[in-house]
Design a protein around this nucleic acid. Structure first.
Lengths: 130, 130
DNA sequence: TTTTATCTACGATAATAGTCGTAGATGAAA
DNA sequence: TTTCATCTACGACTATTATCGTAGATAAAA
């Protein structure tokens, strides 16, 4: 089994991880350009950030010519799961249900979405009964 | 309409908010004692923290003898909603559904829970169709 | 009324996170 | 082969967060 260390990223680091998850392996330049669309920090800031993330083992990288191509080490789903769990434990009294209900409550899902969940629940229930 | 500023709390502040949400208005001593069960920081640290939170308008307080009794300004549900929204926007591509599915996926809900959601969804759907 | 325990206020310090400038390396363009 | 744009490395500096010690106020106990 591939061991899975806990992902502990700061706010700024999460932004970078998200970009890497969305766009795949990227250079600092790539990431910085995307970041620049929403925030306004210098190139070397992004560079440093990613170097630190590399040290922290959040990213892997391979040299390619004079640049480096970075990849998020954890996959998105695992990270989402961990964040979710942390959130459930800390603010939802450990109850995933409570979180789900609240998410559904404020989101106003469409009929299509509701059906999607319903279907999903059916499948779940079958599994429960096996 | 009661205006609702965005709740921006650090990790340590969230711990305190949770205690106040769970146990209601409390003195620094109360909060500190509960905190002490899981972490190991001095009394004045908690005190300072809560004073800062008071300045930041996260808490209100009333004097009672020589002590202060603090109360969380935001209610828990609102705060949960905001955290959820932030999380959805930042790591779930803005899709509440994605978050719900993932939460259900890792939690393995019981039949009773599934029914509870199903029921909830039914009600939702009715509302949609009005 | 004096002592003692406990409280607040406040400032200092430490730890963590975020920012950026500069120097030197490197490859592509002239 | 010289120039130029772009890259990495590194250190320094700032901002934010977390921590705690000390001093003085206050109420309850002795």
């Amino acid at each position: 089994m591939k061991e899975q260390q806990t992902i502990k990223a700061t706010e700024a680091e999460m932004e970078i991880l998200n970009i890497l998850w969305t766009h795949g392996p990227s250079t600092v330049r790539d990431v910085h350009d995307r970041l620049a669309e929403v925030k306004d920090t210098g190139y070397t800031t992004t560079l440093k950030q990613m170097q630190v993330m590399h040290e922290k083992q959040l990213l892997t990288r391979v040299a390619e010519g004079k640049t480096h191509v970075y990849t998020a080490k954890a996959n998105k789903t695992d990270a989402q799961g961990q964040l979710l769990k942390r959130m459930i434990d800390s603010v939802f009294n450990g109850s995933a249900m409570q979180l789900v209900m609240q998410a559904l409550g404020s989101h106003k899902p469409s009929d299509a979405e509701l059906d999607m969940i319903r279907e999903y629940l059916e499948k779940k229930k079958e599994v429960n009964n096996n």
